[in-house]
Design a protein around this nucleic acid. Structure first.
Lengths: 186, 186
DNA sequence: CCAGGTGTACCGTCCGGACGGTACAGTTCC
DNA sequence: GGAACTGTACCGTCCGGACGGTACACCTGG
């Protein structure tokens, strides 16, 4: 499908040169399509960016779904595995995709709405044995993803594996989860 | 200083309307300054964005420094406190600033370079008792910051406090930190 | 069988407007 | 007296989007 080729081209441009490089002409050329052809599939530039954002969300959801086994805590474990697969991919472009697409969505506030909704969904899912630990683990892999976007090879393969093991262990054995009297702790 | 007023205006525009709203004319108007006045302080738009990025980095560094006490693990604890202060601020604009500035830096690849350097510095600092735990904790608060940028009020004050307490406890008592024979674990 | 029609996918050019940046002659305030 | 502006007028470029074609596969009715 030409549609996906166009989205690929757009992502590459974003990852390599930043959001200013995302022009209709550049995307069309990179995809080997004319400007008119691009506009046939995406009537406006906003529609293109919106599709970029949606594809990113759908792909991540699919990656998590395919790894989840339905067991308690399975969602967060799948979340961790899916993210590490992306972050430790041989192709550094794979990790930078998110950063690029997210930045493109920031060109206009409304474009990031689906992203906001997805973020809520990802982080407020509470099917785990210990909710707070699960949240921390998901936030940590999100942080890793983001940090790796800016700073490629921030951690080497060995260090990533260390992080992953510790996160999984944290999920399995959260340690002392007692709360210190909630709000009363001041 | 008018310079800081201009940076404030730029940040507000970015946070409210996205990067396309960041035009020289709009920034000048919002700051109550003429376009000529703006260009007096920042000769190009890139210089403006660069200053935005630098201020963000400097402010975070200062916030961490002022909370750090030099003790082992003090850096990461200060990192956590500084981030939570920002994320749980009454003013939601405060948390969105980073997201906004980072997005602006993504307009051209080179603008994000100082950010890459800072990210490396923040995450590769290893003055803690347990390196892996410290990394996870810093990544988690980064994740929280980022997630809160997209999805304001993702967690309420109570939940944030819960997260913070658990992260601090994790730093103080990392639990079982034994490594499962490094790479050999497969 | 085939003229005529229809929808899909795509091409290539053109235009209006916005935006970054320049230039420069004043003005205000320390 | 000069640094820190104001205000206006202007330029060149770039970019999003509109639009009028084109190629072609696939029907459809006489």
């Amino acid at each position: 499908m030409k549609r996906d080729l166009l989205l690929d081209a757009a992502e590459q441009l974003l990852a390599e040169q930043g959001t200013t490089a995302l022009t209709l002409a550049a995307v069309a050329t990179r995809a080997g399509v004319s400007k008119g052809g691009l506009l046939y599939h995406f009537p406006t530039k906003d529609a293109l960016v919106k599709a970029l954002v949606q594809r990113l969300i759908d792909e991540f959801d699919a990656a998590v779904d395919e790894r989840a086994d339905g067991s308690p805590g399975g969602y967060t474990r799948a979340y961790v595995d899916a993210t590490f697969d992306i972050v430790t991919d041989r192709d550094p472009h794979r990790a930078r995709r998110r950063w690029a697409v997210v930045a493109a969505a920031a060109t206009a506030s409304a474009l990031a709405d689906p992203l906001r909704e997805a973020t809520r969904r990802w982080h407020r899912r509470d099917d785990d044995t210990d909710v707070v630990t699960a949240r921390i683990v998901r936030l940590a892999v999100d942080g890793l993803w983001e940090a790796t976007d800016y700073a490629p090879l921030l951690f080497d393969a060995e260090e990533c594996e260390q992080l992953r093991r510790r996160l999984v262990r944290l999920l399995e054995d959260p340690g002392d989860t007692s709360e210190v009297a909630g709000t009363a702790a001041t």
